[in-house]
Nucleic acid binder design. Structure first.
Lengths: 199, 199, 199, 199
DNA sequence: TATGAATGAGGGTTCATTCAT
DNA sequence: CATGAATGAACCCTCATTCAT
């Protein structure tokens, strides 16, 4: 990467991070492109050299941030000696929840915008180092030799959706109960889903 | 209800329905108050006699529409002779899914805006006839004499979130699979959640 | 005054007083007719039975409030045994200043709207008890037997303008100095103006 | 000043002058930003690149216009051989009055909005060539070697307020007398105020 | 590539006034 | 006399996008 390309990457990252801090603090609707470039110290016209519009930038951001969560969860998992696939998944789910608890505005941003398509894209065509981590976890589950699952993708999809949608309500509004009270039920349901997919 | 009050209710309902058709077709962000009043044939200023702003109207709309879905599902259930609580829940879930399949824009609107708080509000303080139907279903589950559940509210919350979030992806984008392929897994998971809550 | 007329006077006074409190607190530009009638607990349409518009009401209000200041000043003067016309005028000026110091928002309201025409109208055609008091003071100066002034109206005009415009700046913004520091110079100038008009 | 900066100055001046003609003809309250930009032939959004709002523009305008009056008065004074400070002040007052007589709408605009703070700002931090002229007159009075005044700032403040407020009524409404009849009394009072400040 | 002044359509909101009740 | 729902013109202001530099 030469100096010019490096400079471009710095500009692009700066726009992404400025947008992220604004999206999570003010919400995407109330964040204007003027806000983003001002926080980046970049000229308004330059924005359009990097992104088509605000929503183009948002899409880039979601995959990146979602996969960063998985990366951290996976890093933590590696430090343990868990080797049971059920426990591994629960461990990762728990790590994701804890990260989101610590950063509710990230949770709000991701939940409102996340879709399974984002993960699919990351699996097929990761554009970023972080996105490989989701791929790693995915293949670890599907390529297990000791435990085989029927339709592992559907299983992971259901787990992901159940976890992310219940956490949204529980973490942000403590509805119907706070996240710590919800966890036992949630983990139980995750195990249940996995068992039913086990061949 | 005298003539003047009736006239006001007609205006209010007209605004709600105009907004609904616009929200579902164009999305809430791209729908302006000008659009809504124009479709209603009502003056712009009149809007503010009924709603604080666009989001105030939206909140009224979501509870109403979500509960209408339950009303229809419940009506259909009454025409069957199902009396097993597990089958009843599956029947209702299936009815909701079918309604949403037939109306994907309603699904998009509701999913993006629904929260458990909406249901809670409808349970505690129903402002509309429709909202009573959700209450009926809720009490039917919790007041069963033959089957008792531990924490029935959490159970229903988890079922609701699992169903609505997986349907969103599956119905609208066929991700990871289309809704008919997903149903067996989904119903299976719902039964699993219920069994684990059964005392 | 029969019951119906009394009721009308009460409504009218209520509108005047509500308007006054709003004009002095929010300013006349930011006060709407809706605000006024709401504070009065009177219907919007009723406003137009009493006043042509907001500015019609304002004009009624200024003469009333300005003359009330003179009434109070004159009441205080009567309790003293001052009989020198120079001292009398200074006493009244001082009383007016003290009243305005105690009520800066009244000062802002009056100064922005007062004109010599208001006083002239009050002299020629007082519509209110309060307005007679300005007339009293005026005639006391002009009809003196011991001291005669050349063009007493111009003299009073100049004193009034000098006092009101310097007080505005001094009381509200302490520019160029606070009112207590200004007083000696002001009284001195007032005496000077009187002396130069003395025949 | 390069071409771009020059272009910006032209736009800014155009907005100021358009606003001035509208403020003096229709009044500030009835002048909308749409009016101003339309008269300037500039786009609405452009207004906000130069001024925060209508009142921000007004504040810029008052200092500019008030100081222009002094500039012209001072220019005229230089063409005479008056060297007596009393006569100089009277000459300037007379020049100001004559300018305002010739331009009553300017008088109305300035009187309603002028405050001593405006002059103070011009003395301390002149942002415009014109504003230096007020500074010149001010220092000419205060730095005299032949005649010394006690508190010259207060003296000038009182003269300014007396002249501007009496002129407003006299020029615009001939109340209590027309300006030519008022002048002798006014000049007399001005001289009186100066004498009383003379050490 | 980068800039940022300029645009102008279109957003939300207010409010004096009317008029049927 | 009194009401207050309804009006709709007019307001201020934002902002994505362009383009000459």
């Amino acid at each position: 990467m030469n100096k010019l390309e490096l400079n471009k990457k710095i500009k692009r990252d700066s726009l992404l991070e400025s947008a992220f801090s604004l999206f999570t603090s003010k919400g995407i609707n109330k964040t204007s492109i003027s806000d983003i470039v001002q926080q980046s110290g970049i000229a308004k016209g330059t924005f359009y050299l990097y992104f088509k519009d605000k929503y183009d930038l948002r899409n880039m951001l979601i995959a990146k941030k979602a996969c960063q969560l998985f990366r951290k969860a996976d890093d933590e998992l590696l430090k343990t000696d868990i080797d049971n696939i059920f426990d591994e998944v629960i461990f990762i789910v728990n790590s994701l929840i804890n990260q989101l608890c610590a950063n509710p505005s990230l949770l709000a941003f991701i939940s409102k915008n996340l879709s399974w398509g984002v993960f699919k894209t990351s699996l097929i065509n990761p554009v970023d180092d972080d996105e490989l981590y989701f791929y790693n976890i995915y293949t670890r589950v599907t390529n297990r030799v000791d435990v085989k699952f029927k339709d592992p993708e559907i299983m992971l999809f259901m787990i992901t959706e159940l976890v992310s949608s219940t956490c949204y309500s529980s973490i942000l509004y403590s509805e119907p109960v706070d996240i710590e009270s919800l966890k036992p039920y949630l983990f139980d349901s995750v195990r249940g889903i996995m068992k039913r997919h086990q061949i």
